[in-house]
Design a protein around this nucleic acid. Sequence first.
DNA 1: AGAAAGCCATCGGTCATACCATTAGTCCTA
DNA 2: TAGGACTAATGGTATGACCGATGGCTTTCT
Lengths: 259, 259
Amino acid sequence: MVAPSDLFGALSVPGDPPPDMFEPVTTVRMSQVVVDQIRAHVRSGRLSPGDKLPSERDMCDVFAVSRVTVREALRILEANGIVEIRIGAQGGAFITSPSRQRVGESLADLMLLSPITALEVTEARIVLEMGLIPLVVERATSEDLDDLRRLCEQARVALANDTYTMAMSGAFHMRLASSAHNTAIESLAHGFYGNMVSSLRQAQNVAPVMGHVGTQEHLAVVEAIAARNVEAATSVMSRHLHRTEERVRSAHSESVHTD
Amino acid sequence: MVAPSDLFGALSVPGDPPPDMFEPVTTVRMSQVVVDQIRAHVRSGRLSPGDKLPSERDMCDVFAVSRVTVREALRILEANGIVEIRIGAQGGAFITSPSRQRVGESLADLMLLSPITALEVTEARIVLEMGLIPLVVERATSEDLDDLRRLCEQARVALANDTYTMAMSGAFHMRLASSAHNTAIESLAHGFYGNMVSSLRQAQNVAPVMGHVGTQEHLAVVEAIAARNVEAATSVMSRHLHRTEERVRSAHSESVHTD
DNA sequence: AGAAAGCCATCGGTCATACCATTAGTCCTA
DNA sequence: TAGGACTAATGGTATGACCGATGGCTTTCT
């Protein structure tokens, strides 16, 4: 009679490390497999923004899975900003063209939920904004400058009305970043300011007077850009950002005491 | 008998633009509501990394929804990197502590799927890396410098063996970024190089000889940092990055022809 | 007594079916 | 012809069931 172990004699070689005959069986979620397939098609360009995926019920047949699985896959794709779901007749899952808005949101979300301090974010902001100033000076269009001036004017009015918010400052900085005409940089700025607006709101109350100085500096930056003067723009921006950094630093040390 | 319209008499004021009495009825997905509640608790700190959410079946009771809805919510939270699901007994949804790794992955993913060109990414890289040089010069520890020198040495050996890869260059730049001792900057760098490694792989073949020059420049940057010489480090780095930019630019124009 | 083997409760993964809500297109009526 | 009602397509949700994986508990053998 053959002992059971002999049936696997070829595999059980004592003292001999078994080579890669078998791979560990990976338990992959079916919904993840569906996601990977669709994502691969998007990356390869076989699926382009605006394209419509089959209806959920049709995808059940295509992928040979239940509707629950298809729907979970769609939730993942939707959360990743790859598809957009529309309900009703002629609805369905449409491949999205990821907007700066969405990229920025995700970035902001990641920063909010990760152990990154406001101080670190501010420092990264300084790096980013100081670096993009030369690009803006070089590329800003008259439309960019008009928008920036308008934002400064709105801030001035809001300050007079005592309705100035941190979001208005963020809007200025985001518009400034978009004036660099580089989508990647613009997305990063969106991420930073989406984060800043919520995480540094307290700093606004700490120093409401700062708004006046800050707004004046904003305007000074815009005019330096309009004059295509890199040095002046850099100088003003540096002062502006480092003043913000100090404010964050003090707000932080304060919260340490009060928390 | 009261006409139906009279029941809303107070609301139907002809000629008077209706103020914000009614809000548009938004059909929000129930799974999204669940996501929002959990996410809010994470943001407020009531849920911390490592905490375990109730089991799916328990959450059905808590939120008064079906298991399908709970599971879709979990898929969204998982895709956002907020929770991690473990199967089996004592499994469930655990709040994750977002690692640099994850943040970087998501960032890279966002860039891959968004209409951001390699050229734009490279430009953003230049802004980031030039900006972080002063921080690195100020903060780099001997451990940082040792690691960077080791990476340079590995690259030298790999070049001799003809096993040099773009990933090795990326590793150097990521380690350089982490030497700034700023989590936010480190995450951004991870995002950039995770993206670069895949999107610019072709550039490697275009100019394999470049590796020698690039590695020598890497080493020069390290030594300038070790000497705490901001100007020298900035100068070398600027040359290095702009050479890379040119390479990307030519690779891009080439791919335009070959694609 | 200690260790190995097996059993079991828990919990996520998947499926099938049913019904509701929303939406766009169509058709019918005034 | 214009407006409203009907209809089909499609996503959203609920229910109930079963399977697979996992870790702890119990049993059994040495």
